[in-house]
């Protein structure tokens, strides 16, 4: 078994009385592509948000690259109404904001594309380079960090070339065709220099041809950037083709895990997607 890059322990996310994610235990192996699938409303994006620091879990722990990046236990009002199936509360509270987690080496994309719409393609990627800037406000303003700035610009150009967007570099990002916007969002995430890339439904709204291109693209960047990829996806073809390991969520609970072949033949998964056989 190879190294584990990200693991969640008993992650439970409860909003009011609704348990959106219940006792989620995920282990993501380094250099592999792991997928999280499930019907609409199964809690996949919520799980993503907990991992990337957008939400604080109600109970449970997230470990990334050997460090605990998030840990929490039911507190205050939640203590009384906590309804997760994993009852033992954790003891510590560790909170990290999404920006800090990104700087640790975890980058994400969004289900509904969130580009910096009015800015150019080049600026979109260049901004993502800002998170590792060493120069302070004043040296940056008075352009005393010329070498650093030049490197940021060069890296951005190189990255755009790698993902095939260099010809669009001066276009306003919202004017790009849909497929390219998706690609740009991934490029922007790559610019933060991640070890782990989280993709939230990268193929949403794509036609079969675009989806095929996307799966080739994901494989390609995984190799060239030494990435581990964790994705949420509905397109089964894409998931089955590129994933090494799959987790299936339904109503917040993990109902199955395994490699693509195991998942395809798992009765619980078939039931979740297609419903019970009529009696």
């Amino acid at each position: 078994m190879s190294e584990i890059l990200l693991s969640t322990e008993h992650i439970t996310m409860q909003f009011g009385g609704v348990v959106a994610v219940d006792d989620l235990n995920i282990q993501i192996e380094k250099d592999k592509i792991t997928a999280l699938i499930g019907p609409n409303g199964a809690g996949k994006t919520t799980a993503f948000n907990v991992i990337t620091g957008g939400y604080q879990a109600t109970n449970g722990m997230v470990t990334f690259d050997g460090t605990v990046i998030g840990e929490n236990y039911p507190r205050a009002k939640m203590k009384k109404i906590y309804n997760g199936s994993y009852k033992t509360p954790y003891e510590k509270q560790v909170v990290n904001t999404p920006d800090k987690i990104t700087r640790m080496g975890m980058a994400r994309t969004f289900q509904n594309i969130r580009l910096f719409k009015e800015l150019t393609v080049f600026e979109n990627v260049l901004i993502a380079k800002h998170c590792h800037i060493k120069a302070g406000l004043f040296s940056s303003t008075f352009t005393l960090n010329r070498a650093e700035e030049q490197k940021m610009q060069d890296d951005t150009a190189a990255l755009l070339e790698k993902v095939g967007l260099l010809e669009n570099k001066d276009d306003i990002s919202s004017s790009l065709p849909y497929g390219k916007q998706r690609r740009l969002e991934i490029a922007r995430a790559l610019a933060t220099g991640p070890k782990l890339l989280l993709l939230d439904e990268p193929a949403a709204g794509m036609n079969p041809k675009e989806t095929e291109e996307l799966s080739a693209f994901i494989k390609e960047i995984k190799e060239s950037f030494n990435l581990t990829v964790f994705l949420i996806e509905h397109h089964m073809n894409l998931v089955m083709e590129i994933s090494d390991h799959i987790y299936v969520l339904d109503y917040g609970k993990t109902i199955a895990e395994g490699n693509p072949t195991e998942i395809q033949n798992n009765p619980a998964v078939i039931r979740a997607y297609l419903g019970d056989e009529e009696l």
């Binding site: 957008g54 719409k117 993502a128 800002h130 940056s140 995430a189 933060t192």
Partner: peptide, 20 residues
């Protein structure tokens, strides 16, 4: 670079935060 980060916040706070 800081000015660009300001603009990113203007465009989309959540995305800006996700970009570190």
């Amino acid at each position: 670079s800081y000015g660009r980060a300001f603009k990113a916040i203007r465009e989309d706070e959540i995305a800006a935060q996700a970009m570190g």
